[in-house]
Design a protein around this nucleic acid. Sequence first.
DNA 1: AAAGGTAATATGTTTGTACATAATAACTAT
DNA 2: ATAGTTATTATGTACAAACATATTACCTTT
Lengths: 242, 242
Amino acid sequence: MRYSIDHKSPIPLHAQAETLLRQLIAEEEYQNGKIMPNEVELAKMLAISRTTLRQAINKLVFEGLLVRKKRLGTKVAQAGVSSKSNNWLSFSQEMKLRGITIRNFELHVTWEMPNTEVMRFFEIKPDKQVLKMERVRGKTDEPFVYFASYFHPRVGLTGDEDFKRPLYELLEHEHSVIATLSKEEISAIAADKFIAEKLRVPIGSPILFRKRFVFDQGERPIEFNIGYYKADSFVYTVESSR
Amino acid sequence: MRYSIDHKSPIPLHAQAETLLRQLIAEEEYQNGKIMPNEVELAKMLAISRTTLRQAINKLVFEGLLVRKKRLGTKVAQAGVSSKSNNWLSFSQEMKLRGITIRNFELHVTWEMPNTEVMRFFEIKPDKQVLKMERVRGKTDEPFVYFASYFHPRVGLTGDEDFKRPLYELLEHEHSVIATLSKEEISAIAADKFIAEKLRVPIGSPILFRKRFVFDQGERPIEFNIGYYKADSFVYTVESSR
DNA sequence: AAAGGTAATATGTTTGTACATAATAACTAT
DNA sequence: ATAGTTATTATGTACAAACATATTACCTTT
């Protein structure tokens, strides 16, 4: 085994075990329904107790990354790339969680005149410029999403920020802007020429289209975001209860 | 304490503790930031070990219902304003809200052998038949969605019910089945021959595809629902807060 | 060959015990 | 008074040890 657990590290053993499992899963060690070693074995291999290992596995099971079955064992849940609406993780964080390494294909930051939709959402004058960030991201060899984000002038972005950092972390730490509420609209559309080129698919291909309206604590608009996801590469999951 | 734990019950102690905590929280016993008794105390009160109690608390913490803080204790998380409940309107109610009158184009009710996905979700044997309801609905002149619902045998539907009534009302009033939790997966796909015909669009047209897993109060599966929405005719909205 | 019973094997449940750590409260020395 | 230290108290981490239970695989009986 390439990875192992450091008993002298200040990082809790169960946390170490958790990231270790993630790595193994990401490297398709246990990918695609392949059952992983049973708990007693694994615990022995990692030189930790079964209880501690179980803490790690439980977390991944709760996330939906692993599936347990009595007698059969524990295996990786086969699932497309997915996004939970509940938790507020950024795209890259979420992908990392799933063991997928994200590559940034393009990153453009420009100042633009707002279009009608942005103007209306931000409640600003048409001559007030807004910062626009465009991104194409995907797995190693294939782009699968095109994003465009517009930021309210109030946020105070200059355009020189390090946009490779998780976005909401950046906003929170550097600009004291805390995103607390988001409204999203999801629909399916056909790829036009622009999107087809960005995502390297034929014109007319099915695309999952998502608009996202983000607000801060005072319910003031701070970001408007649109995303075009290549079909089959993305599953949006929502959990609701009453 | 009104509630207590039954050590002779077949229901695991941690599960009992979990529902017990939920009840207490629901009854605002520990509501609104009020700290609850510490773990050692609570464990003693419930006559279970701290480890077991912790299992229960952990789950609620994962869900975001409780918040732990060292030295301070555990308290009920400040509730988000999320209007999750409005997700719980039936399709026709939702459309009415938007001023769209729904026409039912097709309505088929049949008994079928479950496919692998249904079987796995319902946790039933492959020879156990399930009730399947198919529907094509849309605006006056154009169909825009194809639905298929599968119901768990436990629900007790016969197939002779009046499916023109709102579904969740029917389940609740006639069968005492209360849907409380739903998980949805949304993605974009290209229309195959079957869907193309149902929705009267060319093969390959973009389609919003939605899977819905519905559970009752005991988190038992009761309905599996898939929906194919014609592009542009449907927008899915989600509101989330933190 | 089909039905039924049994063993094996994985996860599931539960307890008891011990020490670590973070945050506050209480105390102490300057 | 205030800064710094210490004690207290909650959660956090970790282990070992049993027994329960569901499911499959295998064996046995009819």
